[in-house]
Write a protein that binds this DNA or RNA. Structure first.
Lengths: 344, 344
DNA sequence: GTTAGCACTCTTTGGGTTTAAGTGCTAACG
DNA sequence: CGTTAGCACTTAAACCCAAAGAGTGCTAAC
């Protein structure tokens, strides 16, 4: 990519901001009039033609103004966007909302996307962490019915999983309590599968306790660990309707594609966790998501988590013509607030 | 309403079935040709004009064919629709799906709507029962952190609620277990608020046990019962995208309205539980739902439950031009299968 | 390097016409 | 009397065409 001159950059920025604002292709005349350029339309045409050659702009058709390409937007967010600070009202709403939220992880996350959907005209999105990778704080067994047992597993971050399974023999609630205590004593910064390994190892070592109780415990542990938690990972979306307000989605087919991607959440999840381990805040523009249905959408997401552990991504999905200057700081802010909230 | 002649009825039926099939206004000519009427278009026109006067048919505009009104459809489902039996393939799929489902109520319901969304070109919908009205089978407390306690409440129908709350004093897991046992011993065909009342009464009576433990238990019980379960009642929807395939929803504004109603589930819930205590199977056609956004939709729903207790409604939402003959038996079948499944 | 001018392209808009479908009405028919 | 054929009428949709509007690229002059 060749270097852009200062003037080219200024023009590019003006085109993009005008386009973000109006949603319509921007032509040389409007540009020359609106912005404080001291240049004639003709000159701007030349500059814009160059920018088109470089791939930053394109035209829907000859005789229409220019609109930014994905590359144009990319250049904009990387170099040009001036980030406005989060409005006091928004800050207030975010903090108020998060304080009210109950302690369950799901509730906190849900409040997060809801807030984003309310503060922006876009879709709020959050990826729930894979439960299998969470560190377990507590496991408890509840006898429901004969052999049917409910395991309640709580992670340090406050995620609660209910896992229903059948034991081979009927156990009393007292026995289950004893087993719970045993398990909880040896948890300790382990994930569920870590616990599983540890339990099996302990049992192999600890031959002394091979009494009847212990055999039962082993059996129970086998049937419990055989069953995976059903929520492996998932995404939550809110404010899908917001998208309908944007003119670029008045095309029914396009909308259908996007909603389809929303419905089978797998593809969204793949995008969110795709470049996992990258930067703390990510902007994915149009085709960069490598998801055909999402070609006309951008995502702005940030990691949230507790301490040094990343739990997932939270952010928004909107048209590529997104108000990046406002959204990027906002997403950043909310991810931060949420991480702090989960620290408690 | 004046009585309809046999011929009028036959014509009405033909018009409706043709319209359900084609989706387009049906005129006298097509009717005369297709159906085995031995009548000329002119005669049919006369009949149709009468039916329009009676309010069963209407025209989008002069010089268009007729389409059935809500009243027309109503007459059709009440008197005319011949119900086809559920196809063997569908029966198989429903049973297979339900067998696989885990034991949690939510899972069973989710499988239900999913199946409906797959077997029909409409939206599957189910109303989750209000947890506050469910009979409680089991309550268990899990100590998470100092005063923070997780209550796991399981209903007889398999619904699991996690309720997070704070106790005033720090209690050990052992104490919590004892309290759990105490509570579970006195459950017995009561709802959560029933349990609450009973506990408070028991404690008032049972002065003898007013020792330290008992004071704690009372305190805990107070903070626990103060907190309502967060899932009061709710609806689950699946297959929203199916609706996009129907021509009557290609109008963007109309679609937007419907999706808005879907998003804020309250209005759907109101429709579902509106005529609660009515018939086992209900068909709500167009404006009968009294929900402006749903003016062009019909609902076919049936009660599901266990034993004599109704838990909620399951069914589909589609255009008023719905294939009632097929859908009504299908919804009936699945509600039945689900009720049996919940019996286990 | 910048700009005015100009011919050109392409979409959008609007009017007008035609086509197709279907109606209501009337008069004839068995 | 019910039924039917015929016909004039209505309306939406499809189509065409012309004009308008916006914007471009290019060239020549400043």
């Amino acid at each position: 990519m060749t270097m852009l001159s200062a003037r080219q950059i200024k023009v590019l920025q003006a085109v993009i901001e005008e386009y973000i604002h109006s949603g319509e292709p921007v032509g040389s005349r409007t540009l020359s009039r609106s912005s404080a350029f001291q240049l004639s339309p003709a000159t701007l045409r030349n500059v814009m033609a160059d920018l088109e050659d470089e791939g930053f702009l394109c035209q829907p058709h000859t005789s229409a103004g220019r609109i930014p390409t994905d590359l144009g937007f990319r250049f904009y967010v990387n170099n040009l966007a001036g980030f406005t600070s989060v409005s006091a009202a928004a800050q207030l709403q975010i903090r108020a909302r998060l304080e009210v939220a109950g302690g369950r992880l799901e509730e906190v996350l849900h409040d997060g996307v809801l807030t984003l959907a309310q503060l922006t005209p876009y879709v709020g999105v959050v990826s729930l962490p894979d439960f299998r990778q969470m560190i377990i704080r507590h496991i408890r067994f509840v006898k429901l019915h004969e052999c049917r047992i409910l395991a309640v597993v709580v992670s340090v971050s406050g995620a609660v999983q209910n896992i229903l399974f059948d034991s081979e023999t009927s156990l009393s609630q007292d026995q289950l309590n004893r087993f719970s205590n045993y398990l909880n004593a040896l948890l300790g910064n382990l994930t569920l599968s870590g616990v599983k390994r540890k339990v099996l190892k302990e049992m192999a070592n600890d031959k002394r306790g091979y009494d009847e109780l212990f055999a039962q415990v082993l059996a129970l542990s086998k049937s419990f660990f055989a069953k995976d938690p059903d929520q492996q990972s998932d995404v939550m979306l809110d404010g899908k309707l917001n998208l309908l307000e944007h003119p670029e989605f008045s095309d029914v087919e396009r909308m259908k594609g996007i909603f389809k991607a929303f419905e089978e959440k797998g593809s969204i999840l793949k995008i969110l966790d795709g470049a996992l381990g990258g930067e703390q805040l990510r902007v994915i523009i149009g085709a960069e998501s490598c998801c055909e249905e999402m070609r006309h959408c951008s995502l702005v997401t940030a990691e949230y988590g507790r301490e040094d552990r990343i739990l997932g991504q939270i952010g928004v999905i909107g048209p590529t013509r997104m108000d990046y200057s406002r959204i990027i700081p906002l997403v950043n802010y909310i991810a931060d607030a949420m991480s702090r909230r989960l620290q408690n």
